[in-house]
Amino acid sequence: MSRLAVPKTYKLYIGGAFPRSESGRTYEVVAADGRFLANAAKASRKDARDAVVAARGAVAGWAGATAYNRGQVLYRIAEVLEGRRAQFAAEIEEVEGVSRAVAAAQVDEAIDRWVWYAGWADKFAQVAGNANPVAGPYFNISVPEPSGVIAVIAPQDSSLVGFVSALAPALVAGNSVVIVASERFPLSSISLAEVLATSDVPKGVVNVLTGSPAEIAPWLASHADVNAIDLVGAGGLDWVSLEIDAADTLKRVLRPENGPDAAAPALGRITAFTETKTVWHTKSLR
């Protein structure tokens, strides 16, 4: 009873839509055994530009949502992902050449990380902010606020958990993200984009680019409308040059991390993409 499969076209995810690269380019994604799996879109600098525009447009709404709401949306991602565990496990099994159990464990870990970060949405500000006892008649409080548009070079040696580990914390505070997927394992990223598109994540909050990080990253690092760049997956690139490019507009920069623990869950990953804002106001009974 064999049935002829209907393969999926893997495209980019920009501004809530799934466009092909404006350049028309694709590249072959192959299985661990070298078998052809799909033609992924090979994003161009213009796609990166469009993604930044979409991300910038989404910041106000996402940052302006209540923390409770952001937490629910992030949790919703976990819920939807949970419902599609089998699909993701199969995809990972094929592309990474691991056992189904190992692939499934990766999916489970990704889901759990969404849940962990979802729970932080309405708490990190309480931990990272504080009231300041200034010596004067002032109310004074410091709160972490989202940095704005975050560019992320996702970990390159993982299909899903690396991608999620880099993406989720950047979203918690209300930033929007342009994330460049693993070049070798891009399929789960685009499948995850389908999850995001159906999980109440406002369009433009997450934008996923597939293709060559070496080609796209410099454009993101130098883009003046990007506030921070997470080079966690850029260890194989000339990341020092990227950091130098980023310095032109004083971007916040996170360094590459290697190995299976790259982008491990940490509150610091949330606060890294925040700015501490301190507000003073006079106080008096008179």
């Binding site: 004067g136 008649p137 002032y138 006079t282 106080k283 008096s284 009974l285 008179r286």
Partner: peptide, 11 residues
Amino acid sequence: GIPGVDAVGLE
């Protein structure tokens, strides 16, 4: 309708 006074600034 007269503008208010900020006590801290006044003092």
